[in-house]
Simulated assay, not measured.
Amino acid sequence: MDHRGTGQARLILLGAIAPIVWGTTYAVTTELLPPGRPMTAAVLRALPAGLLLLAITRQMLPPAWWGRTAVLALLNFGAFFPLLFVAAYRLPGGLAAVVGSAQPLVAAALLLLAFRQRTPLPRLLWSLAAVAGVAVAVLAGTVTVDALGLTAAVAGTCAMAAGVVLVRRWGTPEGMSGLAATGWQLTLGGLMAVPLVPLLDTGPFVLDPPAVAGYLWLALPGGAISYAAWFHAGRRVPPTSLTLLMPLVPVTAAVLGWMLLGETFTGLQAAGFGLALVASVMGQLWGTSPARRPRPDP
């Protein structure tokens, strides 16, 4: 692997931090957060993380970038986080993970429809294999489908895939760090979700020690750190390559359930998770192969 391939591999490893951390979201939501507060969770995951990054970087957003940043903030946080937590409260985490693992396919469709950019066939095939693996692992167990939760999961997957595509296309304002750009997106996205709290949250707002720990985990590792890593990689690698890491979310959730909650898996479920993991890795190896590397995005 040449120097360019090594740099690409490092970016992929950095980007992988995010879905591994996000694999804890459903367990944290169901075990630590107060019930009936999905919009509160969305706001407290985005807004404190964004304000922290802005305080660290102290960079103002150029006036010409307010429009683009607002679009990215809406797709990546203002819409995605509320939809994510509606799905987390109403669906089994595994079923939501099946939908989320389809992000590389959604990203490939958006690239083709919006920018006439084709995704290499091997990466599409590995993406299909990853979705199939997660689906086998989840559907082999008992699954309860909630229509509203499933709709939210599908919409959230589409929003995040579109956000990843546009982050790659637009980059960052000249002279602004990636941390600052992420901070502005998180802050604006959190503010967009604030009006939804009194409209959609129904449960009492409780700040007992488990809830505080849960919100802190979602805001710091799950928000500021993971999204800084995700967008840093996302500005430099193809969207379908980055989103092919999303099956790491259910794999991480499954490993945590086995280690911490004593959950067990059938042989078929273990094979499904194994296929998803292999597909994620092979898709990245193909993408960094010097002999068959696709041309970079224009």
Rank of each mutant, 00 (worst) to 15 (best):
G189E: 00
V136C: 12
L121F: 12
V206K: 15
G183V: 02
P210H: 02
A153W: 02
G141S: 06
V138H: 08
A159I: 10
F205M: 14
S127K: 10
F205G: 13
Y215D: 02
V145R: 11
L166E: 12
A180G: 14
A153V: 05
L150N: 02
G133N: 07
G183Q: 00
P173A: 09
P195L: 03
L200N: 09
A129M: 12
P209T: 09
L186D: 01
A140G: 15
L166F: 15
R168W: 04
A193I: 02
E174S: 15
L188P: 00
L199K: 11
P195N: 07
D208E: 03
V197Q: 08
G156I: 03
A213L: 03
L148M: 14
L179M: 15
T151L: 12
T182K: 04
T182C: 07
G190V: 01
L186K: 10
A153R: 03
G175C: 05
T172D: 06
S127F: 09
V131T: 03
M176A: 05
G190L: 00
A155N: 03
T187C: 01
L186Y: 06
V165Y: 12
T182W: 02
L216S: 14
D201G: 08
V165N: 11
R123Q: 15
L150F: 05
A147G: 12
P195T: 06
A153M: 06
